[in-house]
Simulated scan of single mutants.
Amino acid sequence: MPVKGTSKSEKLLPIAVLISGAGTTLKNLIEKKKEGKLPVDFRLVISSNPQAGGLQHAAAAQIPAIVVDWNKYRDPQPFSEEIFDHCRRQNVKLVVMGGFLKRLVIPPDFENRVVNIHPALIPAFCGQGFYGLRVHQAVLDYGAKITGCTVHFADNLYDHGPIILQRVVPVLDDDTPETLAARVFQEECKAYPEAITLIAEGRVQVEGRKVKILPPKDVDFEL
């Protein structure tokens, strides 16, 4: 099935960005939008943490932001329901997870409308508990020669949904988790905007677990 986006002649794709911490992914997306390289309309930033540094990036860019505090719920179902209710009220068409560390239960109307980026090559070094420097330490401990990042549609399992694109990074003999993380993040900063742009242009088609990237064309997909 085609993923629903916008055509090149239509207005920008309305997105919400979910954060839990420093918001480095959000900052990158904001910068790409300013450079004219990301055809989106930031409708909302939602943080699971009232102290998240990423809220400052939203404020600086004048993006509306709210906190849905995980500590007030401790239950993924009502926590997720509030998040998606906010997204519906803002007519969000794509939800972008940017360092969002809480379990999200995705409702049927947002199937293939939530994206995530993982700092490894799924299905390796992924799943519950694999986040941040833990991922890169696991790569080094295993002795892998390559790693990278994966942009995928999120479903209701950790790091499991259909893969949109991946980028490969070499693992160097003298790498530490920090140096490897920095090199992977450089690729994340390119891969995530690219994947979101493909969706915005209506060029992403999902068939089961497989994602096809369609050639450039003016296509309008209703949401």
Rank of each mutant, 00 (worst) to 15 (best):
residue 103 R to H: 11
residue 103 R to F: 14
residue 103 R to S: 09
residue 104 L to M: 04
residue 104 L to D: 01
residue 104 L to Y: 03
residue 105 V to F: 00
residue 105 V to N: 09
residue 105 V to M: 13
residue 105 V to P: 00
residue 105 V to D: 11
residue 106 I to A: 03
residue 106 I to E: 01
residue 106 I to S: 02
residue 107 P to V: 01
residue 107 P to S: 03
residue 107 P to E: 03
residue 108 P to L: 08
residue 108 P to H: 08
residue 108 P to M: 04
residue 109 D to H: 06
residue 109 D to A: 02
residue 109 D to F: 00
residue 109 D to S: 05
residue 110 F to Q: 06
residue 111 E to R: 14
residue 111 E to I: 08
residue 112 N to C: 07
residue 112 N to I: 01
residue 113 R to P: 02
residue 113 R to D: 05
residue 114 V to P: 03
residue 115 V to D: 06
residue 115 V to N: 04
residue 115 V to Q: 02
residue 116 N to D: 04
residue 116 N to C: 03
residue 116 N to I: 04
residue 116 N to R: 05
residue 117 I to V: 07
residue 117 I to G: 06
residue 118 H to C: 06
residue 118 H to P: 02
residue 119 P to V: 03
residue 120 A to T: 02
residue 121 L to T: 04
residue 121 L to D: 05
residue 123 P to C: 05
residue 123 P to H: 05
residue 124 A to C: 13
residue 124 A to W: 14
residue 125 F to P: 08
residue 126 C to W: 04
residue 127 G to L: 05
residue 128 Q to D: 08
residue 129 G to S: 09
residue 129 G to M: 08
residue 129 G to L: 09
residue 129 G to Y: 07
residue 130 F to K: 10
residue 130 F to Y: 15
residue 131 Y to W: 09
residue 132 G to R: 03
residue 132 G to K: 09
residue 132 G to P: 04
residue 132 G to E: 06
residue 133 L to I: 12
residue 134 R to Q: 14
residue 134 R to N: 15
residue 134 R to D: 10
residue 134 R to I: 01
residue 134 R to K: 15
residue 135 V to M: 03
residue 135 V to R: 06
residue 136 H to S: 09
residue 136 H to N: 11
residue 137 Q to F: 00
residue 137 Q to L: 01
residue 137 Q to K: 15
residue 137 Q to V: 00
residue 137 Q to D: 02
residue 138 A to R: 02
residue 138 A to H: 07
residue 140 L to F: 04
residue 140 L to E: 03
residue 140 L to R: 06
residue 141 D to R: 11
residue 141 D to K: 12
residue 142 Y to T: 12
residue 142 Y to G: 00
residue 143 G to M: 08
residue 144 A to Y: 05
residue 144 A to E: 08
residue 144 A to G: 01
residue 144 A to S: 11
residue 145 K to M: 10
residue 145 K to H: 13
residue 145 K to D: 09
residue 145 K to C: 00
residue 146 I to S: 04
residue 146 I to G: 02
residue 146 I to C: 06
residue 146 I to M: 13
residue 146 I to K: 10
residue 146 I to R: 07
residue 146 I to A: 05
residue 147 T to I: 11
residue 147 T to E: 08
residue 147 T to W: 11
residue 148 G to H: 08
residue 148 G to L: 09
residue 148 G to P: 06
residue 149 C to L: 11
residue 149 C to S: 14
residue 149 C to K: 10
residue 149 C to A: 15
residue 150 T to I: 10
residue 150 T to N: 11
residue 150 T to G: 11
residue 150 T to H: 12
residue 150 T to L: 11
residue 151 V to L: 13
residue 151 V to C: 15
residue 152 H to M: 10
residue 153 F to V: 10
residue 154 A to N: 10
residue 154 A to Y: 11
residue 154 A to R: 13
residue 155 D to I: 13
residue 156 N to Q: 13
residue 157 L to R: 15
residue 157 L to N: 15
residue 157 L to D: 15
residue 158 Y to Q: 14
residue 158 Y to T: 11
residue 158 Y to G: 12
residue 158 Y to H: 15
residue 159 D to S: 13
residue 159 D to I: 13
residue 159 D to K: 14
residue 159 D to M: 13
residue 160 H to S: 15
residue 161 G to C: 12
residue 161 G to K: 12
residue 162 P to F: 10
residue 164 I to A: 07
residue 164 I to V: 10
residue 164 I to C: 05
residue 165 L to I: 07
residue 165 L to A: 15
residue 166 Q to P: 06
residue 167 R to Y: 10
residue 168 V to Q: 01
residue 168 V to W: 05
residue 169 V to C: 01
residue 169 V to A: 05
residue 169 V to D: 00
residue 169 V to S: 02
